[in-house]
Amino acid sequence: MKITKEEILYVANLARLNVDDVEVEKLAAQIGDILSYVDTLEKVDTDGVEPTTHAIDLTNALREDVVHPHLGAEKTLANAPDEEENMFVVPKVVG
């Protein structure tokens, strides 16, 4: 197989996704097919070819360091699942 179940589980952890035993089988098969197809890229000679990250020539877009109006705390927090004293609440991180 192009990608093993162990690799799927490893990558899923990096992506912060839970994958159960049934899903891992299916994902290994489907992603294996896709990666095998992607391997056709190996046939292309790309020696000395610069990679393209944007198809349009872009240069650094700089602006003056001027303060503009911003959303403000109330709007920023409006969708927060949990908030307290103008801050987002997360589960305890350090013991």
């Binding site: 990608i3 799927i8 990096l14 994902l27 992603i31 292309v44 070819v49 610069e50």
Partner: peptide, 27 residues
């Protein structure tokens, strides 16, 4: 599925074979 493919393609050891190669073909 796409998050896993993308995470795999960008992960250590595979970046050159996938993302960089694809970006060169894009050129």
């Amino acid at each position: 599925r796409r998050i896993i493919i993308g995470t795999y393609a960008l992960s250590s050891g595979y970046y050159d074979a996938y993302y960089k190669k694809a970006s060169q073909v894009r050129t």
